[in-house]
């Protein structure tokens, strides 16, 4: 059995909860084929660098797993069939990282910066002179939901 990381992009018009259940069903497939999913990371609704099937955004999820080749084949076959999945990438890794990946780590410190209420009307226009620091992927509230194992 070898270690893999499988990232898939789900359609933007499904909800985060649906992505969660989709992840669970994929993990179920892995288990049925003799693999062992380690943990999964939901990176959130991120904007794509280019359009995929006319979508500008997508839900990114990564599953870390240990599985025999047959399970990977079955997993990829199912991801190909699933209409909700825009794209996927499964790569073999030497070992599974225990700590969350850079995607989560970069999101972490940003979370407390996002909620800013400038609703209290100020007489001066200084509130608008402030630069928008976040890149395109900062508009969603990210949370690492994949620590259940």
């Amino acid at each position: 059995m070898s270690y893999y990381e499988s990232v898939f992009i789900a359609r933007p018009d499904i909800t985060a909860a649906q992505v969660e259940s989709l992840t669970e069903s994929l993990k179920q497939i892995i288990v049925e084929n003799g693999g062992a999913p380690a943990n999964d990371e939901y990176w959130g609704l991120k904007s794509l660098a280019y359009k995929i099937k006319k979508n500008r955004k997508g839900h990114y999820t990564m599953i870390k797993l240990e599985a025999p080749p047959a399970a990977i084949k079955e997993l990829e076959r199912n991801m190909r069939l699933n209409e909700d999945i825009l794209r996927f990438l499964t790569i073999k890794v030497d070992s599974l990282e225990e700590e969350p990946s850079v995607m989560i780590r970069n999101k972490g410190p940003r979370e407390d910066r996002v909620p800013q209420d400038n609703q209290s009307a100020e007489p001066d226009n200084n509130a608008y002179s402030k630069e928008y620091t976040g890149d395109t992927s900062s508009e969603e509230n990210f949370s690492n939901t994949g620590v259940d194992e």
């Binding site: 990232v7 992009i9 991120k46 660098a49 280019y50 997508g58 794209r87 990438l89």
Partner: peptide, 11 residues
């Protein structure tokens, strides 16, 4: 190239 494939980076 992997990042491009996942639309994390542009082609």
């Amino acid at each position: 190239k992997r990042a491009r494939n996942l639309a994390l980076m542009p082609f």
